[in-house]
Write a protein that binds this DNA or RNA. Sequence first.
DNA 1: TAATCATATACGGATATCCATATATAAGAT
DNA 2: ATCTTATATATGGATATCCGTATATGATTA
Lengths: 111, 111
Amino acid sequence: MITPESFFRALSDGTRLRCLLLLLAEDAICVCEFVHALDLSQPRVSRHLGHLRDVGIVTTERRGQWMYYRLNRELPTWARDVLTAAFQAEGVRDLRQRLASMPNRPSISCN
Amino acid sequence: MITPESFFRALSDGTRLRCLLLLLAEDAICVCEFVHALDLSQPRVSRHLGHLRDVGIVTTERRGQWMYYRLNRELPTWARDVLTAAFQAEGVRDLRQRLASMPNRPSISCN
DNA sequence: TAATCATATACGGATATCCATATATAAGAT
DNA sequence: ATCTTATATATGGATATCCGTATATGATTA
């Protein structure tokens, strides 16, 4: 179960926080997209995403060679509200822009 | 300035989180009241409250020998919203009850 | 001034966190 | 099977965090 303490601990790292703010804007994102948008090393992104999955904040879905991450649909309301509130504080627009500007961005079919 | 990252880092500790949830319900609380409500050692509470003050989340006001802590009135909206959302998750009622049940509770005149 | 109550800080040690680098796994593609 | 791309994990070291205990500061009272 996800508690306020474990949830805030997960948000206390800049890398994880930015991943989540991206996921609030985009439905599903794969690791290489995070790497491009955040301009960080692949192991670093992967490790932090794995942490978010272990805590139960995100879920994963493999699509071929790509691993897609999305916000856990069963995230409690209060947790989603916390993210939405944090979203109001940040200039995430440039983040989203860098995600959109990725060349050869893999596409996920939505179903 | 207070950023989402520094804010969430401050909330990532159980002691600090519970202090803040108490402050969301009660206007101003002094250290010995926190100690009673949380049943923790005085240095531990004081250290965490000091941290919250350093980050700018709470402000202090000395009243005689008592040091009162309150939420920073200038806390940005998004931060207050985060706390309010977290408040929805927790059974803070027992916390508040333990605060109310403190014997010889010092009183602060509100002005 | 001395004694007391409330609060803050200093110190050391245990543990946790984070990173870069290297390597392992897993799924295509040739 | 081999090669390439995508992702995950292991290792070791640097740094941060947290705690209990002891002590310092500050206000109040006797």
